[in-house]
């Protein structure tokens, strides 16, 4: 038994109320929902009855999350978030595999060469910011800001979304929000961009804090590693391994 247009519209209304993020997931679930209702209607149930049964079934899922003030997703959103987590984890594994690939294959020769060139030609820089001085404060403030801006350029819409749902974002908003829309892409992209940069910041902070004078060898090693990480990240973006998700815009 085929669904009529008005019945399909009713199902669409329910789906839109779930505020899903991914087009592909939306389509898949929509098809499943409709197929199941059609099947139940073939067993001589009314549309309302079958709709309620399927709806109840879907709404029983829960997924714990930690996104600002959101602690749990329900129903379709929960299923979507689960899928998001699989992809997110996969992206991270892929990233570290790519990174390790540089060490385990003949590519390491190229990186050794780059390291030697840096050692030879880069001027020796002594890092000595004094803690508590104005310089280190600006440094400490501007680096995270730069990261945020970089991520903002890459994934503007998602970051706005992420900000809206964060605890920080809730300070700026006046109305109570329903917890729903959050895109997984933000998380992955954000983390991937953050990995090399935060590694560098960590080293700089470590050096500053303990006032270690870095010799030229370790300095060139740090530079080479940073370039390696950045190039892996760039490779990721060029091959569009991260950006192949279609975002759903209602």
């Amino acid at each position: 038994m085929k669904l009529t247009d008005s019945q399909i519209a009713e199902i669409e209304k329910y789906f839109n109320s779930c505020e899903l993020t991914f087009k592909e997931f939306y389509d898949e679930m929509f098809d499943h929902f409709c197929s199941e209702i059609e099947y139940k209607m073939n067993e001589s149930k009314s549309f309302e009855e079958s709709f309620n049964e399927v709806h109840e079934n879907f709404n029983s899922y829960k997924q714990k999350v930690r996104l600002g003030e959101i602690s749990e997703f329900y129903g379709l959103k929960a299923l979507e978030y689960q899928q998001a987590m699989y992809f997110d984890r996969n992206i991270k594994i892929e990233y570290f595999k790519n990174l390790a690939n540089n060490f385990l294959t003949s590519k390491i020769l190229i990186w050794l060469l780059i390291g030697l060139l840096i050692f030879k030609f880069l001027p020796y820089a002594t890092i000595n910011f004094k803690l508590n001085s104005l310089g280190s404060f600006t440094q400490g403030f501007s680096i995270p800001l730069n990261i945020f801006l970089a991520a903002f350029i890459i994934e503007k819409a998602n970051l706005v979304e992420a900000f809206k749902h964060s605890t920080l974002g809730s300070l700026f908003s006046t109305k109570r929000r329903v917890f729903t829309d959050y895109s997984l892409k933000t998380v992955s992209v954000f983390k991937i961009v953050l990995i090399p940069i935060s590694a560098l910041i960590f080293i700089i902070q470590f050096v500053t804090l303990f006032e270690i004078q870095m010799d030229k060898v370790s300095q060139s090693i740090v530079f080479t590693l940073t370039i390696l990480m950045l190039s892996t990240t760039l490779n990721f973006f060029i091959e569009k391994k991260i950006l192949n998700f279609k975002i759903f815009k209602a």
Partner: peptide, 11 residues
């Protein structure tokens, strides 16, 4: 159930 099937398919 959908809740068991789709997570596995997506995984």
């Amino acid at each position: 159930t959908e809740g068991a099937l789709y997570p596995i398919l997506h995984k």
